[in-house]
Design a protein around this nucleic acid. Structure first.
Length: 281
DNA sequence: CCACAGGTGTGTC
DNA sequence: GACACACCTGTG
């Protein structure tokens, strides 16, 4: 157990429920969160964090604490259309997740909701993953390796992990990687367009999921994933547009290295509306 | 019962 | 390339 000062410009809950990361659970005073084989339990106590698990250095990396999000939010004030939306999202950060976990999560994300994505990921870990940590008599599991997942019958995934029609996408993608037809590390160093083309080779990964994977796992901060909700709000704020792709291109050109963060800010805003208002944005 | 939930793969023009 | 259309599963 280590006790640290709560990091600046960091709202842990906001980072976790923001739809970028699904491997976490709430505890009485905080959260357990994991990615790959790293896991942490963070309890919030006033202006302190009580941290257990995989160590502070790796946690700081995962939370991108080396990035000055206070300054980044200040810079984004130039976007007048964002106005109060931006202020309400202070504390939000982009997390640095393991690529393999992120690939699985966003294959699952198609036509799906957060609760079910989390349920499927938990089941995959419990059924086929390895134990990575114990907190309060609860064992937490990593996701199965590509080799392991490649050997599983898709029907089992569907029946036991509730992944639905994404069953074969998951297994196919795992096979591509375990067969050496796709290298997880092969994305690094590519330009954005090439990186997106590469990641979209994976089964079940299209433009939207691909953008999410590039943004959340590979550090392409200029990626601007556009889903149905993002489409609606972008049309409201900056529209009209002729296609989702046009919105993505606009977001990248306009927000540059902050495009991915802006997308998260907007998603946070949409979530707030859905929780409070009912009826959506 | 039907629409919807953070789309993608496949087939058609 | 731009379009339909099907697709697991849970919820309101």
């Amino acid at each position: 157990m280590e006790i640290i000062e709560k990091p600046r410009d960091t709202n842990l809950e906001m980072c976790l429920v923001s739809g970028q990361h699904f491997q976490w659970t709430k505890t009485d005073r905080g959260f357990v969160l994991w990615t790959g084989k790293k896991i942490w339990k963070i309890e919030e106590e006033g202006d302190r964090w009580l941290v257990q698990g995989s160590g502070l250095e790796d946690l700081a990396y995962f939370l991108s604490l080396d990035q000055d999000y206070g300054q980044i939010f200040e810079d984004l004030k130039r976007e007048e259309a964002l106005g109060p939306i931006l202020e309400s999202a202070r504390g939000l950060r982009l997390l640095r997740q393991e690529a393999w976990d992120t690939i699985l999560a966003f294959i699952l994300s198609t036509n799906n909701n957060v609760a079910r994505i989390q349920k499927s990921l938990l089941a995959l870990g419990q059924l086929y993953g390895d134990p990575i940590g114990d907190f309060k008599n609860q064992t937490y599991y990593s996701l199965p390796s590509p080799e392991k997942l490649a050997s599983i019958d898709p029907r089992d995934l569907r029946a036991k992990a509730g992944v639905g029609y994404r069953d074969k996408y998951l297994v196919k993608t795992a096979q591509m990687i375990s067969d050496g037809l796709f290298r997880i590390g092969g994305i690094d160093g590519l330009g954005y367009d090439q990186a997106l083309a590469q990641i979209c080779r994976l089964s079940g990964v299209g433009k939207k999921a691909g953008d999410c994977i590039l943004l959340f796992a590979y550090g392409y901060s200029q990626a601007f994933p556009v889903d149905t909700w993002m489409e609606k709000i972008m049309v409201d704020l900056y529209g009209p547009f002729k296609s989702r792709e046009a919105i993505s291109a606009f977001g990248q050109a306009r927000f540059k290295d902050q495009a991915g963060l802006v997308q998260q800010v907007l998603f946070h805003y949409i979530r707030g509306l859905k929780k409070k208002g009912r009826g959506g944005p």
